[in-house]
Nucleic acid binder design. Structure first.
Lengths: 100, 100
DNA sequence: TTGCTCGGTTAGTGGCAACTTACCGTTCGT
DNA sequence: ACGAACGGTAAGTTGCCACTAACCGAGCAA
């Protein structure tokens, strides 16, 4: 998930799909400065983690961003946020007690 | 930001700081299966993007997760989410009109 | 069917980044 | 002041991954 978002090219693909709406692989290859096979490989990765969804229309595949992956990221972030605050509070309390 | 979160070892460091609370570099090196210099380098990266904060206490540096970076990630995610929905709605409306 | 376009797959290469080893500055205890 | 512990930095190596070139299958039009 975060591994998928770690690559700048994959983020550029997502950005293109976000701002321009769903489009085909060929169009993506025109807008993102890498070859078409590279686009395919990145779309495979993005699809595996649920960040992208595709729909066959004739010979061309239309890709769009998929909210499922974004939702997973959001819940992960919320959990991380809460736990970090909790752990920090615990740590403060613990060091307070050690000071006594 | 997302580049920093793209590395598994860095996520392990954050996970350790999250669950165990703030701790020193040496302790982190014990809990995460990499050498101490590697920990230092990763902490440098995490600190550069505001995901981690450190505080010198004697010779040892205590690191903890910093909410600033998490907040930035959250706002980015929220914006991305909204724009994706908007772009999708636009695309649906556009294809509807093309169908006529 | 034949030709054409679109796109996924494979093989191979190059570059980057994560890791370790060695070194050095800093700070505390004795 | 001396030694030890802690941690950041430099240099060097290795492994992985992003990329391209070449190939192949699938669907549409003539």
């Amino acid at each position: 998930m975060l591994d998928a978002l770690g690559d700048p090219t994959r983020r550029a693909i997502l950005e293109t799909l976000r701002t321009g709406g769903p489009c085909s692989v060929g169009v993506l290859a025109e807008r993102v400065p890498v070859s078409r096979p590279a686009i395919s490989q990145h779309l495979k990765v993005l699809g595996a983690v649920g960040l992208v969804q595709h729909e066959s229309r004739g010979t061309r595949n239309i890709y769009r961003v998929h909210q499922a992956g974004l939702g997973e990221l959001r819940s992960w972030l919320d959990q991380f946020w809460g736990d970090a605050l909790q752990a920090y509070a615990d740590h403060v309390r613990q060091t307070e007690e050690e000071r006594k």
